[in-house]
């Protein structure tokens, strides 16, 4: 790795760090209950919940830290935090 002398770094290079390894609980999305409001994506601190083509939402589990904000805020209780198996 060559040091760029001004302690500069390329934008978005944190993507190399997969924070999904942090979590104990993972959010499970139930599209049957989802009203496509987008609140989950709005309030995800990692910005990793994206809208699918069909309008539903899906988290990127490589980065999801399992904080549970999405589940807590979903007005339809369509997201449930589940203890992740080994």
């Amino acid at each position: 790795m060559k040091l760029i002398i001004k302690t500069v770094a390329k934008p978005g290079s944190t993507r190399a760090n997969k924070t999904g390894a942090w979590r104990s609980f993972m959010p499970v999305f139930d599209h049957k209950l989802c009203s496509k409001c987008g609140i989950c994506a709005m309030y995800c601190p990692e910005g990793i919940i994206t809208r699918l083509e069909n309008g539903f939402f899906e988290p990127d589990y490589e980065y999801c830290k399992g904080c549970g904000i999405c589940a807590n805020e979903c007005p339809k209780k369509a997201i449930v935090m589940v203890l992740e198996g080994k």
Binding site: T19, Y43, P45, G47, D60, Y63, G66, C67, G68, I69
Partner: peptide
Amino acid sequence: MSLLKPGHRGCAGCCDAL
């Protein structure tokens, strides 16, 4: 995709990241 990229070291549920 947000302009604040994932992979940062903020706490799970971090208000500053939001």
